[in-house]
Structures are given as structure tokens and as C-alpha cells.
Design a protein around this nucleic acid. Structure first.
Lengths: 219, 219
DNA sequence: CGTCCCCTTGAGCAGAATCAAGCCTAGTGG
DNA sequence: CCACTAGGCTTGATTCTGCTCAAGGGGACG
């Protein structure tokens, strides 16, 4: 993201190293205390919360260029886990005593992250399943494109349907059916960890409002 | 909130005045550019986003002690409105050129706000209607109690059922039925803009996981 | 070759939405 | 003083979106 470029530069003095971790391993574990900030260089991850009954809500999808752990500042136990989806490489920033001159860029990063959360809540609140899926795919493409990681309407999507379900607040089975319908209508297809948007306009209008509204039945 | 005390003190030099506004009027309008931060002294408000088709998602309920507009720093058009629910009094902070020494406290406030968004997303994602309502009522009580605004299990709740519906991602009608059931089970009652929790334990176990799971039917 | 993970599809059910009234209260104005 | 209105709450009947349960298929990998 171009916008984060200056923030990144200001953080450089605090960089303490680069790490790699394998798919499915955890970078931050729910309940631990946080003392670092991470900056993802490549790979996908998710930030999620586990409920006591086993249900899971994925709060955010983390893409290359995103930061993790901006709320280390609270100094409390973290209430979520961050888990790699693919192999992940990331820079580590050890910010023990925070210098005032980097507080400002961090604040900007936190605000950006919140914008994303707002949008996600709008998906989870009033939107139907197909609206959610459509909006999600468009959102992924846009975020990847902004980082130069999408080739036009084609982009990598290394998520299982279970991931999407947990992110969108749906069940795996239902996500599957919705994806199938989107493919049948030639809007998007998912294959081999790649998504191809065939009809961006159609997908966008579906995301904005589900036009497949039930017609009023004759009496 | 005790935690925000030091932040508030550091912001004092930037305070430019105190204002009052009437119920249902807007403090921040979707699309405007933001140049101030507000600190609510009394009254309730909501932060919400309007969809093109008229649906609305309330992103956050704003209580006395909360800050509004922490993302002014992005300098972009704000994508939400903040609207008073009751009469509202609030302090205004005009922070045009941001001094570095207050970036840190603001960052902490932003992180706190995000914690709340995370919790709300967990409600909107996997939780059922009655879980959402129960969790919401407990959450309101806790936040008010932390500010000395709840008398034990009794607290003001100046929201219409439409407000709750828009916040919880449900319909007015369904919120009504859920509230009725909660009252019948003697868990909570709402009356005259006040909520009374009769059975905190029962309500909490309902919020954690809906135990009214359907028994397996005989074949 | 067997196991594991993920995807797919069907049948049936239920939680929540929609549609449609009706009620109550507070406020307004004739 | 009372009719009238408007906003919010309540309830019933009905429909449908999305969930649950269940089973099977295919690819990757040891």
C-alpha cells in the first residue's frame, strides 16, 4: 500500500529481524502478552478468535504489507490469535519503550486497520451470504492489486472454504453453494488457489445489494 | 473508564470548548472531512454506516467517556456518521498539527476502541440472535458500570428496538421477540428506557453459548 | 494403499426475515 | 378537552435463507 510507505520507513530503526514461519503455525497466540509488531512481507495469515464452544470468528485477513500487533501498546493479554495460512515471511519490530516520533505513524496504521474492520462489520451485519462472498472477493482483489499482487482480475486466494466461512460468519457448506452459484452465473471462479473474476460489474452489483430478491408471489 | 484518565489529561491543552446537541442530530456526517476529536461527557450516540439500499449498520454504541473521531488522522472522508441518541454533551479537541507527545495516548485510545470492534464482530459472526442480545446487554452494563453509570444490575438504556436491531444485525421484530423471551425467563426486563438484569448468571451463560439447542427429534 | 483434508451435493429443518395488523403513549392543534 | 397523528412496541401468519446432518468423491502424501 503506497500510503504505508512512510510509516514503514520511520519504523526501520526498530527492526530487529526477519522471520519465516510455516503454514498453519501461529505468530500470536490468544492470551499471550504482546511485545512486538510484525510487518508481513509475503504470504497470507488470519487474525481470529476462538469461542469456548469451538466456533471461530476470523476477524481479519492479513495480506503482505499489513502490520500485526498494533495493539501491543495496551499491555494486556491479546484476545486473538494470528495464524499463518500460507508460508509467511515478516519483519519483526521490537518496540519496548515507544519513541514519540513513531507513535504518529503507528496511529495512522491503526486507523487504516479500523477502516477495514468497519467494512467487515457491514458485511457481517445486514448483508446476505452472496453479498458477503461477492464483497469479500472484490475486497481481496483490491487489496492485492494495491500491492501489485493481482494480475488484473486474477489473484491468488489460498484460503479453504472453511476460512471464508469463519471470516464471513457462514458455514462451509453454505459458502460452497454460494461459490457454485457465482461460478454458474459466470461471475467468479475459484480454482487451484486462484480466483478469476469474469464479470466485475456483475459481481460489484451483487456485492452492493443482492438483486436476487424473491419476487412477490401471486395470491 | 479509569484507564483513559491519563489520556484525557494529556489532551486537555487541545480542548477548544464544550458543546451540547439534541437527540437525533448528527455530530459527524458520512462523507465529511474530520478535523476534530470529541470526548463525550454525557448522553448516548451511535456510529453507523448507511447502505445505498437504506439498510443501516450501527458500528458502535458511544457512551459517556468515549472518544469520537480518532481516525481524523487519515485525512480522508469519513465513511460513517455519528448521531446523538439522547441529548449529548461533549468536549471538542481541535488537533490540527498533531504534537508528538499526544500521539501515544491517542494510539492507546484507538487500540481500546478496536478491542470493542473485535468483540462486536464476534457477536455478528457466529452468534445467534439471543446470544447477541444477551451479550449486548451485559456489555452495556459493564461499560456503564466502569464509568459509575450503572446502579448494580440496573442501568439506563435509551435505545429503541430499531437501534438494537441495526447494531446487532437483526430485524426489529426479531429483537422484540427475543427480548420478550428473555423477560419471560426472568433474565432481563426493559422498561421506560431502563434495563434490569434479574439473573446475571443466566444471562451470561446465554451470551456465552445458546443452551436452548434443539433436542434431537425421535425418528 | 490408506489416510487425511478439502470439496461437493442432497434432504430436511429451524432461526430469522417479511408482511400485516393492532395497540399504547405522548404530543399537537383545533 | 378531545380528535388526530406519529413513533415505538407487540403479535400472528407465512416464507425463505442458511444451518445441520449425512454421505461420497478426489487429490496429496507418507
Amino acid at each position: 500500500m503506497g500510503r504505508a510507505a512512510s510509516e514503514t520507513a520511520l519504523l526501520q530503526p526498530f527492526k530487529t529481524g526477519r522471520r519465516t514461519c510455516a503454514a498453519t503455525s501461529a505468530i500470536i497466540r490468544q492470551g499471550e502478552r504482546q511485545e512486538r509488531i510484525y510487518h508481513v512481507q509475503s504470504g497470507w495469515a488470519h487474525r481470529s478468535s476462538l469461542l469456548s464452544d469451538g466456533r471461530r470468528q476470523i476477524l481479519d485477513i492479513v495480506l503482505p504489507g499489513d502490520f500485526i500487533g498494533l495493539d501491543w501498546i495496551l499491555g494486556v493479554e491479546i484476545s486473538y490469535s494470528v495464524e499463518a495460512i500460507t508460508e509467511l515471511t515478516y519483519d519483526v519490530f521490537g518496540i519496548v519503550e515507544l519513541e514519540a516520533d513513531i507513535a504518529l505513524p503507528l496511529l495512522r496504521l491503526a486507523a487504516l486497520e479500523r477502516q477495514r474492520l468497519d467494512l467487515h462489520m457491514i458485511s457481517l451485519g445486514p448483508r446476505s451470504a452472496s453479498e458477503r462472498v461477492a464483497a469479500f472477493l472484490i475486497d481481496c482483489r483490491d487489496r492485492l492489486a494495491a500491492r501489485g499482487l493481482a494480475a488484473g482480475a486474477i489473484f491468488p486466494l489460498p484460503l479453504t472454504q472453511q476460512h471464508m466461512a469463519d471470516y464471513l460468519g457462514l458455514t462451509l457448506v453454505h459458502v460452497n453453494r454460494v461459490l457454485r452459484r457465482l461460478a454458474e452465473r459466470r461471475l467468479v471462479t475459484l480454482e487451484n488457489g486462484e480466483a478469476v473474476i469474469h464479470d466485475m460489474d456483475g459481481l460489484m452489483s451483487l456485492a452492493a445489494a443482492d438483486h436476487e430478491r424473491p419476487g412477490t408471489l401471486p395470491v
